[in-house]
């Protein structure tokens, strides 16, 4: 089973605050999933290439041209806090 410290470390990386009861629950839940996938380790995959794009497309590109968004207000209107037409965040320094 994953340790408390491991779950807290994962939660930190995932940017999710966990309460005491959560830690225990996710210790169990995550361990169940990790045990479930354990059998994959025994599969012989030597010489096999990973799947990264299943229909075989490679480097699809399009012209890099700027398009003017006509709905700046609509976009900013979704933010909990804006100031002078910018998204507002707390100071990080």
């Amino acid at each position: 089973m994953l340790s408390k410290e491991e779950v807290l470390r994962i939660a930190k990386l995932a940017r999710i605050e966990l309460g005491e009861a959560d830690v225990e629950k996710f210790q169990k839940n995550l361990s169940t999933v990790l045990e479930y996938v354990e059998a994959l380790k025994t599969v012989d995959t030597s010489g096999l290439e990973e799947v990264s794009q299943v229909t075989g497309l490679i480097n699809v590109q399009r012209d890099d041209r700027a398009v003017l968004a006509q709905n700046r207000e609509e976009i900013l209107g979704q933010a909990p806090e804006i100031k002078d037409g910018y998204f507002k965040v707390k100071a990080i320094l």
Partner: peptide
């Protein structure tokens, strides 16, 4: 051990 391995089994 996990992601890369899984994507190889996916190839199978």
């Amino acid at each position: 051990a996990y992601y890369k391995k899984a994507q190889k089994v996916r190839r199978l």
